[in-house]
Simulated assay, not measured.
Amino acid sequence: MDNIFIERLWRSLKYECIYLHAFNGGAEVRAGIRRWVDFYNRLRPHGTHAGNTPREVYHGCLPLSGPGYRPVLQAADRAA
């Protein structure tokens, strides 16, 4: 079960980056993968994260309420 996440990442990388571009050499491949990973983490919404990017989830840049989001804090919680 723990491999499913990394296998999904590799599948996305292959179908969204590698198979779509004709890279000429290792430097181009590295640059292309670097751009794709940046896109994947910063811009591409993920269904698992309720349509948010991994960056938004990791850094906690989410609204305070809604399905799949952090809970709304009560006034007493905010004061603490």
Score class of each variant (00 low, 15 high):
Met1Ile: 12
Met1Trp: 08
Met1Gln: 11
Met1Arg: 11
Ile4Arg: 14
Ile4Gly: 13
Ile6Arg: 15
Ile6Glu: 13
Ile6His: 12
Glu7Met: 12
Glu7Lys: 13
Arg8Ile: 08
Arg8Thr: 12
Leu9Trp: 14
Leu9Thr: 09
Trp10Arg: 10
Trp10Leu: 14
Trp10Cys: 12
Trp10Glu: 13
Arg11Asp: 09
Arg11Asn: 09
Leu13Ala: 03
Leu13Met: 14
Leu13Lys: 00
Leu13His: 01
Lys14Asp: 11
Lys14Asn: 14
Tyr15Trp: 11
Glu16Leu: 04
Cys17Arg: 02
Cys17Lys: 03
Cys17Thr: 01
Cys17Val: 02
Ile18Met: 07
Ile18Phe: 01
Tyr19Ser: 12
Tyr19Met: 07
Tyr19Cys: 10
His21Lys: 11
Ala22Cys: 09
Phe23Gly: 05
Phe23His: 03
Asn24Lys: 09
Asn24Asp: 12
Asn24Arg: 08
Gly25Glu: 05
Gly25Ile: 08
Gly26Asp: 09
Gly26Cys: 12
Ala27Asn: 14
Val29Lys: 03
Val29Arg: 01
Arg30Ile: 07
Arg30Ala: 10
Ala31Met: 04
Ala31Glu: 07
Ala31Asp: 10
Ile33Glu: 00
Ile33His: 03
Ile33Gly: 02
Ile33Lys: 02
Arg35Tyr: 06
Arg35Trp: 04
Arg35Met: 06
Trp36Pro: 00
Trp36Leu: 02
Val37Phe: 08
Val37Cys: 06
Asp38His: 15
Asp38Gly: 06
Phe39Asp: 01
Phe39Asn: 02
Tyr40Gly: 00
Tyr40Phe: 11
Tyr40Asn: 01
Tyr40Pro: 01
Tyr40Glu: 00
Asn41Phe: 02
Asn41Ser: 08
Asn41Asp: 04
Leu43Val: 13
Arg44Tyr: 05
Arg44Leu: 08
Pro45Gln: 10
Pro45Gly: 06
His46Ser: 00
Gly47Leu: 07
Gly47Pro: 01
Gly47Val: 07
Thr48Asp: 03
Thr48His: 08
Thr48Gln: 10
Thr48Trp: 06
His49Leu: 09
His49Glu: 02
Ala50Lys: 00
Ala50Trp: 00
Ala50Gln: 03
Gly51Ala: 09
Gly51His: 04
Gly51Phe: 00
Gly51Trp: 01
Asn52Met: 07
Asn52Gly: 00
Thr53Cys: 08
Thr53Asn: 06
Thr53Ile: 11
Thr53Gly: 02
Arg55Gly: 00
Arg55Val: 01
Glu56Ser: 10
Val57Arg: 02
Tyr58Ile: 04
Tyr58Glu: 02
Tyr58Asn: 03
Tyr58Asp: 03
His59Ser: 11
His59Ile: 05
Gly60Trp: 05
Cys61Thr: 10
Cys61Ser: 12
Leu62Phe: 05
Pro63Ile: 05
Pro63His: 09
Pro63Val: 10
Leu64Trp: 05
Pro67Gly: 04
Pro67Gln: 05
Pro67Asp: 06
Gly68Met: 05
Gly68Arg: 00
Tyr69Asn: 01
Arg70Gly: 05
Arg70Met: 04
Arg70Val: 07
Arg70Gln: 11
Val72Phe: 10
Val72Asp: 07
Leu73Pro: 04
Leu73Ser: 12
Leu73Glu: 13
Gln74His: 14
Gln74Tyr: 10
Ala75Met: 08
Ala76Arg: 14
Ala76Pro: 00
Ala76Asn: 11
Asp77Val: 11
Asp77Ser: 13
Asp77Trp: 06
Asp77Arg: 10
Asp77Met: 13
Asp77Lys: 09
Arg78Glu: 14
Arg78Leu: 15
Arg78Cys: 12
Arg78Thr: 15
Ala79Thr: 14
Ala79Asn: 13
Ala79Lys: 15
